[in-house]
Design a protein around this nucleic acid. Structure first.
Lengths: 238, 238
DNA sequence: GACGAGATGTGATCTTCGTCACACATCATT
DNA sequence: AATGATGTGTGACGAAGATCACATCTCGTC
């Protein structure tokens, strides 16, 4: 199987934001080659669904381009967003490794390019390449840690403002330092932010306005500026 | 290093509740032996602290006997309980694998017997035994799934009664079917239950009383009886 | 530039739970 | 039996935030 994206997985590593920290970074050449030989590359339009919760795992997805929303929905229609998946990250690894249903649904937020690896191909690959198993374990550790952070945010905060402050600070890690403070692109709607931190859309709007009036943040289109990080931190009660 | 508990880890498997599903179950003999040669066995009294959050991981802990509370605490003293660790389970694996600080604190609830494996010994062991890496990945998957469930419980439920109902149903999985319904030993205080599901102690007390009066549950000392599981399920909105 | 869809801002209620305050129960220890 | 420490039951109260109901605002598309 020769795709037009030969060695895509390994090249992905150089493009992705968290250089060197992803599943497919720094694997040996032979391991990379083995991976490349079992992957399927495909594109999805915006709003496409890669998988839904409860479904048995067909395989893992490696996001090459675009962003994917990973979320859980209750029977009453309420939604929690687990995370927004960035290029270079892997989707569905835990379900495949543990052979249990996906717990979340994955939906593209933009046109995406994705590599897919079938469940049995991937499991065979893992058992044949020890370094990949270890990498998988490391990757899953990271996911677990992030999940714990979200538990902390949902379960350990009193107020909505605390949650939002934490969320903004968390987001700002991906931003850039400037003279005026940390600058981040925030591509999520208030509704989506609410679904991450567990509050209603209106509360996000109100609390954010409140932050603006207190000059803790400044918003300009989709860019967010945090002029005084430590002020926001004390507000986050951390 | 020859401990008086020769092959303790593998024997643990036979005693533990989730037979065959734990980290050290069904590993090859040579792998087990390698594990046994790097472990340290020790006992802890009730209330002992194995590790605290933020601390860098010294190694992993395998619980042989007793129960351990895994929890996170906020600066204001609020607490979330991630889970109660049962015999046969592993503690601190994610921190060791990802070389990041523990995210939770571990405190014994009873006198415990624990096997400890030093960080570098364990990592070397993983790299030398491919099957163990894979097992580690599987174990971490399980932890991740449980964390997602807790996120669902904390973020996706409207009411306290929904949370409690879910918690009771979740607990009842470990219980026994009887003529009168499912019977479980519930060794947690209302306070602790509140810390798991994210409500105050009083709310747990009140909601549980409410369930009793509606004959959804019956409590007798530390045993809980769920006469009509499906009634409780509809109440949990699941 | 007009339209429409989605995102955001804001006010007015209404509910649920957290908090405080204490009474009572249970159990181990002396 | 007396004591104290923990756990449990219950009322009163208030505050935070969900919900509802609109009024803008923004932006892509025709």
């Amino acid at each position: 199987m020769h795709s037009p994206y030969g060695l895509e997985l390994t090249r992905t590593c150089e493009q992705c934001p968290q250089k060197g920290e992803n599943f497919f970074c720094n694997l040996s050449k032979s391991t990379c080659k083995a991976l490349d030989s079992i992957k399927f590359t495909s594109g999805y339009p915006k709003g496409a669904v890669l998988f839904v919760e409860e479904e048995m795992p067909r395989g893992i997805f490696v996001l090459c381009k675009g962003r994917v929303k990973l979320s859980m929905t209750s029977s009453e229609g309420k939604t929690v967003i687990l995370r927004i998946v960035q290029p270079g990250e892997v989707l569905g690894l835990h379900a495949v490794v543990s052979a249990r249903p996906y717990q979340a649904s994955a939906e593209t937020l933009e046109p995406c390019q994705v590599n897919f690896i079938r469940r049995d191909d991937f499991l065979r690959f893992l058992s044949e390449h020890a370094e990949a198993s270890l990498r998988a374990a490391q990757h899953l550790s990271g996911r677990y840690q992030a999940a714990c952070e979200q538990i902390r945010s949902l379960g350990l905060t009193h107020s909505a403002s605390e949650k939002l402050a934490r969320f903004l600070l968390e987001s700002s890690l991906k931003g850039q330092e400037t003279k005026l403070g940390v600058r981040v692109r925030l591509t999520m709607t208030h509704e989506e932010i609410g679904q991450v931190i567990g509050t209603s859309r209106e509360t996000v709007t109100r609390t954010l306005s409140d932050f603006k009036s207190k000059h803790l943040v400044a918003v300009n289109g989709s860019t967010l500026l945090i002029p005084n990080k430590s002020a926001l931190e004390t507000f986050a009660g951390a």
